[in-house]
Design a protein around this nucleic acid. Sequence first.
DNA 1: ACCAAAAGTGCCACTCAGTGGCATAAGCCT
DNA 2: AGGCTTATGCCACTGAGTGGCACTTTTGGT
Lengths: 216, 216
Amino acid sequence: MPTAASSQTALPLRERKKRRTREDLIETALRLFDENGFAATTLDELCDAVGVSKRTFFRYFTSKEDVAAAPSQDLWTTFLDQLRTTDPTDRTVIALLHEALLAALAEMPAANWPTRVLLTRRLASETPSMKAHDLYFCHRTTKTALNLLHTRLVLTPQDDLRVHLALDLLLSAFHLAQEAWAAQPTTPTKNDLITHIATVFEAVPQSLTVKAIARP
Amino acid sequence: MPTAASSQTALPLRERKKRRTREDLIETALRLFDENGFAATTLDELCDAVGVSKRTFFRYFTSKEDVAAAPSQDLWTTFLDQLRTTDPTDRTVIALLHEALLAALAEMPAANWPTRVLLTRRLASETPSMKAHDLYFCHRTTKTALNLLHTRLVLTPQDDLRVHLALDLLLSAFHLAQEAWAAQPTTPTKNDLITHIATVFEAVPQSLTVKAIARP
DNA sequence: ACCAAAAGTGCCACTCAGTGGCATAAGCCT
DNA sequence: AGGCTTATGCCACTGAGTGGCACTTTTGGT
């Protein structure tokens, strides 16, 4: 008698268990990091709280930073999936990237994703090693995306350079939008973030033409 | 009787000693990392080789990654200095940044800087934690540069966004140029790097207009 | 239903980066 | 010279991350 509560019954038991421990680890980690700070929380504490050995933790995450960055990584993993499936015709590459990002955002659970990702962002802004980890992950994402686009699009060697720049620009724009999103006075929602992204994207062309005017 | 060998005699003894230890640490670290690999080299080995206690090492560098990234950090520190002194009049911000970067490059010692920085780059490409450290440092540099430009230029809130994008673009362009530089068939010189930077900068406007053409 | 292969977990001992605290030595100033 | 400041060394300690192996759970075939 499968109730509505178990929505993904298609998955085998082992897989469900794994997802559950992974989710438990992320959930508890974010709570502990939030309450006591990232540095002040030890992995032993986290593992005790979840009821898992430290050895097992490192079979799910590569580092202490990694578990805290999970929410933000989910977005970019989904982004890559979208990039694999979105029809690329009749668009500039930058518009394609923008669209794939919006599609990825749409996939994120509207309920708790904003709070989670904002918490991750706050932790990253307070903890250099976390920010570094996040930047590295984004760097990996651009590399993967570039390879992906090469398999799907016709790109000359010159285009490779331009597309790479476009990807870096996307990441940069997203981070700036995220900052504005986190700083806004009202409670940040997913739609707000989409608006901020649009705003930053509109500012991109002007970034090449801003004049330097010396202070008097 | 000050000989030509001691060029900066103006500095007090203590300061000279400090610079020397710092330089020794960087020099030896790069050599050991190059010979045995970053992970395989322990800080104890490095400290033994230089004749310094581990405690002292951490008074010069914040981490193992930090000492290996020193050559690349030198450039960006000099870049910020240039940004403080360059006359900003009659230019776009992006041109100002480009120029400051070239000026910083000019300050680098032509003899060993290329090899050093290429080694650092290779290590970073092989070692995630080093790449992450490097990206974080660049991130800090853009933040500092942005604050700096605010003190020297008249920037509206909208301009802030645009200038931030321009800074990210500069970093992105530099990294792409550096990759091309490292990959070139002939021995990379400082002038080659300058040429690569110019090439990437020229490609920037087109990065916004590349069309996505699906593979057949 | 049973059993063997496979996949996941726990435990233990270990390495090594990084820190705090205090005693000692080296450069500085008059 | 002699006190003052600053840099270094030493030691003990925390905590992240790993290797290895024994143990348990799931799975798939019969």
